[in-house]
């Protein structure tokens, strides 16, 4: 299974942000867009085209799944949830990025990192 996770890495920025947004709770498309914007402090904004293009791939790859919610408002929208395999892929990507950050911290002087 570990080998399967490795073949998805590195994740594209949009994919990473979508999985990160879904890591907290199930969200509909617009909710994902808002969550991505919030997590990135407004520096990364997804458009609907980019969002659903990536969601389609994540659904097909089995990293994300659709969930159905009861209730008038919720039933009108589709909600998406990152499944356990998706979480493993996300965790592997975070670990990879963490290693990159550590390497950067070791190689670059502190003043350059603050700049």
């Amino acid at each position: 299974m570990k080998e399967d996770v490795a073949k998805f890495l590195p994740l594209a920025p949009a994919t990473l942000h979508i999985l990160l947004a879904l890591a907290g709770e199930d969200l509909h498309g617009y909710g994902i867009m808002q969550e991505v914007s919030r997590q990135s402090l407004g520096q990364y904004k997804l458009g609907p085209g980019t969002l659903y293009d990536n969601l389609q791939r994540l659904l097909d790859q089995g990293l994300v799944q659709e969930v159905h919610r009861a209730g008038r408002e919720e039933s009108r929208r589709r909600y998406y949830r990152v499944n356990s395999f998706g979480r493993r892929v996300l965790a592997a990507e975070i670990a990879r990025l963490d290693a990159v950050v550590r390497q950067g911290s070791r190689l670059l002087p502190a003043r350059l990192r603050r700049a």
């Binding site: 498309g29 617009y30 609907p48 085209g49 659903y52 969601l55 929208r77 589709r78």
Partner: peptide
């Protein structure tokens, strides 16, 4: 699959 949601977001 996604058309209606995209229009909704618009």
């Amino acid at each position: 699959r996604f058309g209606q949601e995209m229009i909704g977001i618009y």
